[in-house]
């Protein structure tokens, strides 16, 4: 039996902001403390075992009315992949017009999530 480690999380489920403590040994949760409701317990479990995040950034777009196009992942990804996804998108170039929701990168970095356009970008009128 290995030693029990304690991790703490700030619950974001409601304004109460409970300080959650998760005891775990060998990656298995032994005990969760500090929650005031079921949502807190569920949040602690998710944050401890598999924290997931939405990712938003912008990519370069040419020929549009703006130089940057906002993009996001189609579903939350593992928290630890956020930086790598944003970095990978630095080299992406798209050309206007773009439709909101268009898939720009499928299965980004093997996460299973697509990178999609978060707005439509119409072509800039010719000068």
């Amino acid at each position: 039996m290995s030693a029990v480690g304690t991790a703490t999380y700030l619950c974001t489920s409601c304004p109460l902001g409970c300080r959650l403590e998760v005891d775990a040994a060998d990656g298995d949760i032994v005990e969760i403390r500090g929650f005031e409701c079921k949502r807190g317990e569920r949040y602690a479990k998710q944050e401890h075992l598999d924290p997931r995040r939405q990712v938003s950034t912008t990519v370069r777009v040419t020929g549009g009315i703006l130089p940057r196009l906002p993009v996001r992942v189609s579903e939350p990804v593992a928290r630890d992949s956020v930086r790598a996804i944003v970095d990978a998108l630095r080299t992406v170039r798209v050309v206007a017009p773009v439709r909101c929701g268009a898939v720009l990168v499928a299965d980004v970095l093997g996460t299973g999530a697509d990178v999609i356009a978060a707005r439509s970008m119409r072509r800039a009128p010719r000068a």
């Binding site: 939405q54 938003s56 950034t57 912008t58 906002p70 996001r72 909101c100 978060a118 707005r119």
Partner: peptide
Amino acid sequence: IHSGFGLHYFAEEITGPE
């Protein structure tokens, strides 16, 4: 450009531009 918009008004979590 971040997420967190629309859960109440559009019943779906989307970004500001969407």
